[in-house]
């Protein structure tokens, strides 16, 4: 939902970044207001995954120029955990398996870290179980997954549902979903997309990083951005995704060249 007067949540200005000695982002500009859904599309290596991890504070990327403001605050100055607590969420393309750490315990510690930041009371084990069971319904997840180690032995679809469950518990202001659609069959995709749609509201924003239009058939974006060579090359509405699906990325290559 586009509302020109909605508060600006995320403001990326001329962002440059590198991994080791390799420049990846070469001047990204993007503004995200509350209520908006943005899709960032592009080929492998265009920089879209780098952008998402960098916003979450992944230590492998170093910023070499530009700025990122989150509700006016310098996001890049914050540790990854501080970014999460103030409402930035990254849905991982490859959620990490953590043997021996109970999923339920992990979800509770994470949820409480965010609650404390928002000035809410921490939830004890019982209150949290009530909350998590209610949110499980959103992604149609079996409560048995709470008893297992974080993502350990989960299928691709189960891992992605677990990501959306975390999003449902943390209630971020900006959710960045990095190829959440990859590796999902059509049923799992519907469930995951359904969860994202239910969580999207007038006060938060969603950034979908994706290759394919099929996710955008289920979640209608307000803006579609095409990334190439570390920059956003073009911005449009949903029709841009349709055009990409039809004509491919060849025109992008020509423009970059």
């Amino acid at each position: 939902m586009i509302r020109p007067d909605a508060p600006l949540l995320l403001e990326i200005r001329d962002l440059h970044a590198r991994v080791e000695d390799q420049p990846i982002l070469k001047g990204v500009n993007l503004s995200v207001r509350a209520g908006e859904i943005h899709a960032v599309m592009g080929r492998n290596g265009s920089g879209k995954s780098t952008l998402s991890k960098l916003l979450a504070g992944h230590p492998a990327y170093s910023v070499t120029g530009g700025s990122v403001l989150f509700r006016g605050q310098d996001l890049l100055a914050l540790q990854p955990e501080q970014r999460a607590r103030i409402g930035v969420f990254l849905g991982f393309q490859y959620p990490v398996e953590i043997p021996g750490v109970s999923n339920l315990e992990f979800l509770r510690v994470a949820t409480n870290a965010r609650r404390v930041e928002r000035g809410d009371e921490e939830l004890d084990t019982f209150a949290f179980e009530d909350l998590v069971r209610e949110r499980l319904k959103l992604v149609q997840m079996d409560p048995a997954f709470l008893e297992r180690s974080v993502n350990e032995g989960f299928s691709g679809g189960e891992k992605k549902r677990n990501e959306i469950l975390q999003m449902a518990l943390l209630e971020p202001l900006v959710a960045i979903l990095d190829e959440t659609d990859s590796g999902l069959d059509i049923d799992a995709l519907r469930i995951v997309a359904g969860g994202v749609c239910q969580l999207a509201g007038p006060d938060n924003a969603t950034l979908l990083i994706t290759h394919y239009q099929r996710l955008l058939d289920l979640i209608t974006p307000d803006y579609v951005h095409v990334m190439a060579a570390g920059r956003i090359l073009r911005t449009g509405g949903k029709e841009l995704a349709v055009e990409l699906e039809r004509s491919g990325y060849d025109w992008v290559d020509q423009e970059v060249a």
Partner: peptide, 21 residues
């Protein structure tokens, strides 16, 4: 990093991982 990205500070994340191990 996965734990940190969910709001869990490094020392608490390390402790969780150690306990799990």
């Amino acid at each position: 990093f996965y734990l940190q990205s969910r709001g869990i500070a490094v020392d608490q994340a390390s402790r969780l991982l150690l306990r799990g191990y």
